[in-house]
Amino acid sequence: MALEFIVVQYPEKREVFIDGQLCGLTNITLYIQSGTHRFHLGVPKDYRPSEVVQAIQNTSPLEPAAVVFEKVNV
């Protein structure tokens, strides 16, 4: 079970949900275990895509995987 690193990118500070659980905030490096994960952000729902499913592996603290959401007007 390898320790991996991700950054969930979004123009604002927002809660990050990993596999349905609150696991931190956007734009900081987060710890995660290797594997396939589902990401979404907290309310309001002014982002897209509505969720990202991404396999995370082979990252390092210097090269975290990026999970990218963009802001949309609602």
Binding site: M1, T36, H37
Partner: peptide
């Protein structure tokens, strides 16, 4: 949710 996702992980995260 993680159980369904982990089901795809036999190669990249076998323990999970």
């Amino acid at each position: 949710q993680w159980i369904g996702l982990a089901n795809q992980d036999h190669r990249i995260a076998p323990e999970r």
